[in-house]
């Protein structure tokens, strides 16, 4: 259990680091291409932007796991533990509802690009809308298809070769990340229910850094 936990932590952390690193290098390479070689990686911008979306959307569920999402804790810090627990439970329900609606929306958005059917029903999925036209043919703007994805055209485009990467690929992150997000919010909700945690947020973006900085400062003062 702890091994699996550590392993997924590591995987998610490396993915976050990797995506950010690749975004930076890709953009940097494009500058070099332009100024040193008077050339251009035309798809660099679009590819970087997709990596950006993958980074944040996949990272969002990791942030839930680590209770790292930003929030306002002024009120809950004033509340007694009973109220605090109730508020945390309400928060958990809100988060689960959010992830649920977004998962439905993400599926509805992505499915046609995979020639699948979106769900019917406004608030809740009530079956599939089989009148929807497939959009497997829909391509991104600039990104060429890497050779190892050539099989996509057979699956999604009746064998017609793609000139550009089909949208089904970059948008896949939506249903995947929202499913993960729902899963992590359900876990967090359970942790609140069983009393393991009493809030799902941090109050500001620099909480970890501040802790470290405070420690450094304290050490300096003690040395004085």
């Amino acid at each position: 259990m702890t091994f699996a936990k550590r392993w997924t932590d590591r995987l998610e952390e490396n993915l976050i680091a990797f995506l950010l690193g690749m975004m930076t290098l890709m953009t940097f390479a494009n500058v070099v291409a332009r100024y040193v070689f008077n050339s251009n990686i035309f798809y660099a911008l679009e590819l970087t932007v997709f990596m950006f979306a993958w980074l944040v959307l996949l990272g969002a569920s990791y942030a839930v796991k680590k209770s790292a999402h930003l929030g306002v804790d002024a009120i809950i810090n004033m509340a007694g533990s009973r109220i605090r627990r109730i508020l945390a439970l309400i928060s958990a329900v809100a988060c689960i509802a959010y992830a649920f609606f977004l998962l439905k929306g993400a599926w509805d958005y992505w499915a046609p690009f995979a020639n699948l059917y979106p769900t019917e029903g406004r608030w809740f999925p009530l079956g599939f809308d089989e009148t929807t036209r497939g959009r497997g043919w829909y391509e991104t703007q600039d990104i060429p298809v890497p050779f190892f994805l050539n099989w996509l055209s057979d699956v999604f485009n009746d064998g017609d070769a793609y000139e550009k990467l089909p949208k089904v690929v970059p948008y896949l992150v939506l249903p995947v990340s929202m499913a993960l997000l729902l899963f992590r919010f359900l876990q967090a909700g359970w942790a609140v229910w069983t009393g393991k945690i009493d809030m799902m947020i941090v109050s500001h973006e620099a909480e970890d850094d501040v802790e470290e900085a405070a420690k450094r400062l304290k050490e300096q003062e003690e040395a004085m």
Binding site: L70, D73, I75, Y98, F101, M200, I201
Partner: peptide, 14 residues
């Protein structure tokens, strides 16, 4: 939603 401790992102989105 924000004041009861829902993450800001979720408060906005929900």
């Amino acid at each position: 939603l924000m004041l009861i401790g829902v993450p800001i992102a979720v408060s906005l989105g929900l």
